[in-house]
Design a protein around this nucleic acid. Structure first.
Lengths: 239, 239
DNA sequence: CGGGCGCTTGACGGACCTCAATTTTTGTGG
DNA sequence: CCACAAAAATTGAGGTCCGTCAAGCGCCCG
């Protein structure tokens, strides 16, 4: 998708050696930033390392110690859990710019995999915690982040109690809000991923998409590309 | 950043008059407490007001500004949302000791009602935020709280994709962990509440309970009282 | 060009919802 | 404390949505 993002080279300080490190408080940076709510992003870039994961590679596993916080630079990530009956439940999708690994427990409660070839910025949790202790703006941002995550999960609960059509419509609306270029949504994930996210089967997802297409609410020119033709109809379905 | 707020309530000493106030950091108090993770509970008691709500009374409404944080002193609370089709989705149940209203947004995303006659401790969010800015222990506790809430919601997602029997079994296990006296679980909420929590109908909930009773996994001596007879069977159902 | 994988489409059955009647529990006034 | 009414919960019958099983199609990659 993005050919060699310049972000990857965005000077984690360690590249230039320790002498570039300065003992200035992080809050100094905040003042220098146009938007103070970018303090965290800034800090992550400074303190983090960029890692690359190919298609389907594991980023971390369930029950591993949760040492790091991750930010998607490019590509896309799914978190998931395998249930005892063998089914897979997807915890969430994370696209470029999203932060994941924000469990507050000592261990990850989900595993994480790259859906497509993905670059992520990795920051030690303890480092961020220390920074948050010094810089209230960072602490506030972390709270905001936690709040967003909580809200997203709560909204998914609302989705999961609805009909298949409503779930798929809701999913498309969510993805459109997060990753739309106009009315065209490029889905990085497979039908199986979507099904495991929505608690449906691939057959039902597929049939529902076909159904939406037949009512002219969407078009599906290729399986990973969806064109939203009638958003208000989708919104109506979403409830 | 932290302009010495007049909120002299940051420790118990204020009870003995303003002259006892000292310019010591709040973290000192944490060390004085037996369990440092009770700082927040302590602060809430000092700074909060106790309010009483009768059966079915509204505590706050969806879309109202979220000014307060609440802690259940006695009784029980449900949060919920009315969907556009008229159905009601319950966001969560909160029992004695639980904290709710922990949205991070400016407005509540759910309404809250007392299930039974309930007393809650109410604390202004802004007061807590100020305290968290001064006292890192409080900030940490708030994070822990947010993490617990997030985990609970995530686990509910896992529940919602399962069969009716698994959902009900999971619900009983959850309630048993939170409010059990031995093997006896007293449910404060109605079947309708349970159904709206699990995304089922009251008929299905009722039938499922009857089914579990017929397999000797539970007993239902009265509709709000459940006796767990075979926890391992329930755990097996829960997946 | 052939094989494999992801996706779609079809037929069928079962789990859960809907509608309805009955029983049990709760609340109220005498 | 009992009688009655209202609400909550249970039970039953029938219908529907979605899961299961299976076949067929399209696309990518070797």
């Amino acid at each position: 998708m993005l050919p060699q993002p310049a972000v990857g080279t965005d000077h984690p300080l360690h590249r230039f050696g320790p002498q570039t490190r300065r003992a200035q408080p992080a809050s100094r940076h905040a003042a220098a930033l146009a938007h103070e709510n970018e303090t965290l992003a800034h800090a992550m870039q400074l303190m983090g390392a960029t890692m690359s994961y190919p298609h389907n590679a594991e980023i971390f596993g369930e029950n591993e110690p949760a040492e790091y916080l991750y930010k998607v630079v490019s590509g896309s990530v799914r978190t998931y859990k395998i249930l005892t009956d063998g089914r897979r439940q997807i915890g969430g999708f994370y696209l470029a710019g999203d932060i994941f690994g924000l469990q507050f427990a000592d261990e990850h409660t989900f595993s994480a995999e790259a859906i497509t070839d993905t670059k992520v910025l990795v920051v030690k949790r303890s480092t961020l915690a220390a920074l948050a202790g010094r810089d209230a703006a960072v602490a506030r941002e972390l709270f905001t982040l936690a709040g967003r995550e909580l809200k997203r999960v709560q909204e998914r609960i609302l989705l999961l109690v609805k009909s298949a059509q409503e779930r798929v419509a809701g999913f498309l609306i969510e993805m459109a809000e997060r990753a739309a270029a106009g009315n065209i949504v490029e889905l990085p994930m497979s039908r199986q991923d979507i099904a495991d996210y929505l608690g449906l089967t691939i057959e039902t997802v597929s049939r529902t998409l076909t159904g939406l297409e037949s009512t002219a609410a969407i078009e599906v020119p290729s399986s990973r590309r969806i064109v939203l033709r009638n958003r208000s109809a989708l919104n109506r379905l979403n409830g």
